[in-house]
Amino acid sequence: MKKKWITAGAAAALLMSTSAGVYAGANLQQIQAFLDPSIKFKVNGKPFQPQNDKGAALAPITYNGSTYLPVRAISNALGVAIDYDGKTNTIFLGEKQDGVPIADSAGGDFRTKDPQLTTYNGKDYKYVFFNNSSGRRSSGFMLYPKGKYQKLYLQTAAVGKDIEEFFVSDSDTDTKLKIDKVNVSDGLKTYEIDISGLQTLYVHADLQEGGNWFVPLTTSYYK
């Protein structure tokens, strides 16, 4: 059922919430269709009302015996990430084929391009988050996927001492998406985390005296 909804949603690309200017140069074909607010929806057994990005109710369109649903509203209801590329006039649903490095959306201190700090096990990662302060401490940084991606593939390593607690959370709801302990012996670990529809993430680690935290920002990525 989910795939059918997504397919129908993709056909309704014109209803995607975006600026009117996006379609100024598009090759559009005029049709006669009808809004049908009488159609009701349920998602996983619960009533669902399609809405635009401002929270206003949207009615499905009926055309030639088929019902077309708003892409963004359905993607949000089904937990499928959505993004739009105005240059290619392409809507992306779910994971992207190519990974997008988190480097541009990472915030916080301890980001560095210093070659003395960006190398781990003989490989230079060019741009990293590296907390090498002293003492027992908590450390973290923000990520801003802005609802555009389905998955986060995050690499992290404990240097010197094990990381007692590591987690990634949805900062808007304070919901932890992944919790783990990172050992030095683990090497560089990669976590696959479902982030569909999430706007802002918080990545956190509790560090011991003599322990450092290494996160490559170029090989950690969204999809």
Rank of each mutant, 00 (worst) to 15 (best):
K223H: 06
N44Y: 11
L201Y: 07
N183Y: 13
K161N: 11
V203P: 01
K42Q: 06
T18E: 09
G21Q: 06
V168F: 04
A56R: 04
K161R: 13
S75D: 02
E192M: 07
A73W: 08
K40E: 09
Q208K: 14
A10Q: 13
I61S: 04
L35W: 12
A73L: 09
D170K: 06
N212Y: 15
L201N: 06
G210E: 05
D170S: 08
K151T: 15
K176W: 10
L35I: 12
I91V: 13
V168E: 02
P115D: 06
G25N: 07
N121C: 07
V184W: 00
A20G: 12
Y202F: 12
F167P: 04
I39L: 12
K176A: 14
A77M: 09
K96I: 14
Y63W: 15
V215D: 03
V22Q: 14
V159E: 03
V22I: 14
F48Q: 05
G197I: 05
E164Q: 13
T175A: 09
T173N: 11
E165W: 12
L143P: 01
D114F: 08
K46L: 03
I61Y: 03
G65L: 04
I82G: 01
T119P: 00
V43Y: 02
T118H: 05
D36P: 04
S66A: 10
Q49F: 00
F129M: 06
D162A: 02
A10F: 07
P115H: 08
K40G: 03
K123H: 13
E164Y: 11
A8C: 09
N89Y: 15
N52W: 04
F110D: 12
D114Q: 06
D170T: 12
F110Q: 10
K3A: 03
S185T: 14
L14D: 15
D98V: 15
K113F: 01
T200S: 13
F130M: 06
G187N: 10
S134P: 04
D98N: 13
S105I: 00
E95K: 03
L28I: 11
M142T: 09
D174W: 10
V22M: 11
F214M: 05
T112S: 07
K146T: 08
T190K: 09
Y120Q: 01
S196H: 08
R137D: 08
T62R: 14
L207E: 05
Y63Q: 10
P60Y: 07
L93A: 00
L15E: 15
Y127D: 14
A11S: 14
A57F: 07
A11C: 09
G86T: 10
A8V: 10
D85E: 13
N121Y: 04
N44M: 06
L93R: 01
V182F: 05
R136C: 00
T218S: 07
E209L: 00
